[in-house]
Amino acid sequence: MKVGLFIPCYINQLYPQVGKATLELLEKLKVEVVYPSGQTCCGQPMANSGFENESEGACINFVNNFKDFDYIVTPSGSCAYHVKKHYNIIQQTDDVIKVRKNVYELCDFILNVLKIKNLGASFPYKVGVHKSCHGLRGLRLGSSSELVIEPYSYIEELLKEVEGIELMPLDRSDECCGFGGTFAVTEDVVSAKMGKDKIQDHLRNGVEVITATDVSCLMHLEGLITRNKQPLQVRHIAEILNSTI
């Protein structure tokens, strides 16, 4: 099995530790991982802003980088979702179809392709799970609270196996944090208010560390936490699953 690692642009530039954790984790699980050097961005920032057409170059570059892998794994539900859902704007060649089908968010890949639950991690903290929306309602990494179906959550299934961890339930289990890409800037007031409320929910419920499948949500929350000097930390889920403290 040959796996191509996709590290989203903002992780690459601003949160490289998340990329490292992802790579180390996959290697620990004996996966043959390659990080293609020509990768940039999945194209989502332009597309979500209403400029899908400007993102075509990025889409094509993505496919070219990843077409030869059995799976493409990324520590971002949002990017995986974008490739799956919105790569219909470029010509649907065999390569494009294959890439769209085989792109996986990290937890999804570990649980449902590798079929491993216990990763031997330990993380002795009270953790609140932020269910990033694109992973939750786009990739269906868990059951959203609106639907009347058997509840499940891939993220929590993996986290429950982590030694020492205590998962803290929230008042609103899957409300959006307010990042939303350019929304964070064009609707900055509401975006910040959403983030603030989300953080309060975690604080109220005794959370020490917020985790998520998407760094973008965490960057937004961390920005607010740092500014307001609140007693909370953020960690991408790969960092927790790769942790042995």
Partner: peptide, 19 residues
């Protein structure tokens, strides 16, 4: 962004470089 939120501290190396 910076009105209400801090930006992350820029790391020395990108993931690319580290890799």
């Amino acid at each position: 962004w910076g009105k209400t939120r801090d930006l992350p501290v820029g790391p020395k190396k990108s993931f690319d470089q580290w890799y």
